[in-house]
Design a protein around this nucleic acid. Structure first.
Lengths: 174, 174
DNA sequence: TCCAGATTATCAGAGCCCTGATATATACGT
DNA sequence: ACGTATATATCAGGGCTCTGATAATCTGGA
């Protein structure tokens, strides 16, 4: 990986010109004593930024990658179905899919048995984009898995799922 | 906690008019077999939406609440310091603080020993907003803690912190 | 048959969050 | 003292996400 090989020790002294020492991630209230919601937010922000950085050269965003992956996994989907699967509102799904249609990665076509539903299908461009993006996100996924002790993975996954179901379902009644 | 008491069985039949049965949160690839990044995204989305819903009546957003909490916890902060603490870019921090200044919750004043830095301090309005918002977010925090087996809390917190430090640090070199 | 409710798609507006770029201010080595 | 590097604040632009509102479509029961 060789991320920061310290090509020169030009930053030996203080990191920032701040007067007070503020905690870095992992210290103080930013560490194990912080609110769970805050820690979850912080971890998610780090992962999202890592993913966006990994995808930058492909020309698609992380939400766009998620939608393409869902369409590939479940077959042609409607905007409403994408919204439910991705835990976003139908309006947000519409924003993302509209951008993907403009990019040529998705195509809309009417549902054969429902005059209002528009199904989204992957185009050749979309499949190519996904093929280029996938290894990059898998690298992040591996970095993420590397932070995880083996015996801790199963309970963690169960907890993440449980949070989504327990807190997510009540909020779906909008 | 009595979350889903099933007040009426008016939705007994199919949930949605979809032809194919798509997994709900917790099922299939949306469950314990999914990518960690996906599960983390899903859990975070659920928590964020729960928080936004809880804060809706207060007139502030969750990011605004986070910034107000940071200023309260660490004293007057600059925009750059807020960005580092909240794991967002300085530009984003500037957006949020500008909105909070417009709301009258924060006030900018020049740093006594640095002619460029603008420090942000809580106003009376800001303290009142925070006082009204805090119990609401604490309720969500309790719901979140309720999903957590006691012996699992410590390793979970450590993992969340580790993700932020391990994946967050390399991405800071922008 | 017809109407009420549910589902879907989409417009409008606002806030968050990013990248890129610009201008000012401080710190440090030469 | 000067110049480079570092920090900070902020403008501009675009994508994501939400709430609210509107219209079209379908389903099921009176």
């Amino acid at each position: 990986m060789s991320r920061k090989e310290a090509k020169s020790p030009r930053k030996t002294a203080q990191e920032h010109p701040v007067k007070r020492a503020l905690p870095r991630a992992g210290e103080g209230k930013r560490g194990v004593d912080g609110h769970l919601a805050y820690l979850l937010r912080q971890a998610h922000a780090a992962v999202r930024q890592a993913l966006e950085k990994a995808l930058a050269e492909t020309g698609i965003t992380h939400p766009q990658f998620v939608v393409l992956t869902l369409v590939r996994a479940y077959g042609d989907l409607s905007g409403a179905e994408i919204a439910r699967l991705a835990v976003i509102t139908p309006q947000t799904a519409n924003t993302i899919t509209t951008n993907l249609v403009r990019l040529g990665a998705l195509a809309r076509h009417p549902d054969p048995s429902h005059g209002k539903v528009l199904r989204l299908s992957l185009t050749e461009t979309g499949r190519n984009l996904l093929a280029r993006a996938r290894p990059r996100t898998e690298a992040v996924e591996r970095d993420l898995a590397a932070t995880l002790p083996a015996e801790f993975e199963a309970p963690l996954r169960q907890w993440l799922v449980r949070v989504a179901t327990d807190l997510g379902d009540p909020s779906r009644d909008r």
